[in-house]
Design a protein around this nucleic acid. Structure first.
Length: 196
DNA sequence: AGCGTGATCTTT
DNA sequence: AAGATCACGCTG
């Protein structure tokens, strides 16, 4: 299967947020354990105009990876227990990223069930904190990229527009009006809405 | 609907 | 130094 190259991640953030839907995220662990998930829900975080974006006030120790090259992984820790997985977008020194909010398990389900302490398929990766747990992603993956043997994304045919939904982002308190969330309509692995 | 959990950021 | 917030998940 063909892998997405750097060029793909150079798309404008909002476009990338949509084009990543349906693509297969691959995580390879020591022992040649392959974990695969189909991306079904994403959100854009970019520009200094967006108060919900970590980088809206400029570069800090935490958000510095958001200023790196497209295709870099930005992983951060929040709520005292969860890691969030983002794919960096925008040119170097311009902050931006796509939050991966949900995936559909494609390979390595047994491993994921064990890590999640849950057997229900729609519960394994149907949220940003759940999927990092299922894929064994933590801050040690922060700053790595999608052009390695450890992480890459497989290309798939583009989805028809009628399968793609748009909405406001989930779980934020600022810039709530922006329609920067994309998801695959009627896919059971999309996360549940949460009010804040 | 309420709470745990701890890093990060803002305010004092 | 202290206080608030948080791109969440789980229980009930």
């Amino acid at each position: 299967m063909e892998r997405l190259e750097q060029q793909f991640y150079e798309l404008p953030t909002l476009e990338l947020t949509e084009k990543l839907l349906g693509k297969i995220f691959v995580r390879v662990l020591p022992g040649n354990i392959q974990l695969k998930g189909r991306i079904v829900e994403t959100e854009a975080y970019f520009s200094i105009q967006d108060e919900a974006c970590h980088a809206w006030r400029g570069k800090t120790a935490r958000n510095r990876i958001m200023f790196e090259t497209p295709g870099t992984l930005y992983v951060y820790f929040t709520y005292g227990s969860h890691y969030m997985l983002n794919i960096v977008s925008e040119p170097v020194n311009t902050p931006g990223a796509v939050l991966i909010r949900a995936m559909e398990p494609v390979e390595g389900e047994l491993f994921m069930q064990e890590r999640r302490q849950s057997s229900l398929m729609t519960n394994l990766m149907s949220g940003p904190g759940k999927l990092t747990r299922a894929l064994a992603i933590d801050s040690s993956s922060n700053g790595k990229n999608l052009f390695s043997e450890e992480f890459f994304v497989e290309n798939t045919p583009p989805l028809p527009d009628c399968m793609i939904g748009t909405s406001t982002r989930v779980g934020i308190s600022k810039s709530r009006e922006l329609l920067w969330r994309k998801y695959i309509i009627n896919n059971p692995h999309v996360s549940k809405f949460r009010k804040v």
